[in-house]
Amino acid sequence: MNPLDEPLTAFERNARTVLEESVRRIDGRTRSRLNQARQAAVAAAAKKRAPWWRGFTLMPAAGAAAAAVLVMVVMWQRQPVGELPLLEASQVSAEHPAVEDIDLLADGDAMEMMEGWDGSFYEWAAAQNDASGESNS
């Protein structure tokens, strides 16, 4: 298809030939500079079009960070206003059983003892101890 909509006149054809010749004569230095500019432009376009799945590679880290923030917010809101987040041992009382539970959970030996609790044995041992005390007296 002729790119021009109408046939070229002789003048236009000659002018076009001369213009194309002038393009053909562009020197090597200019061609080299234009080539470098083109390489930079194509590289810029490639950088811009990052793969769509790249956005998902940060999802685990972003999820973990969001979860940590959520836990912090919940704990902060449950904390009574004006109180320290942790209590001293002397302050532990029946009002704060949760602190005792934390100590229990942190002590591995205590957990094993709780799991292997044999109430009948301890009751029997206590009864034996009481009976021996009465007989001694």
């Binding site: 213009l19 562009i26 234009l34 083109r38 194509v42 376009a45 079009r49």
Partner: peptide
């Protein structure tokens, strides 16, 4: 990192287009 072949093809097409117009554009 161009792992998608369609992106490579498109980059190649862009490169070819620019190579075809750069001298006339300069004039």
């Amino acid at each position: 990192d161009l792992t998608d072949s369609s992106q490579q093809t498109r980059s190649r097409a862009l490169n070819q287009f620019l190579a075809g117009v750069e001298l006339k554009a300069f004039k």
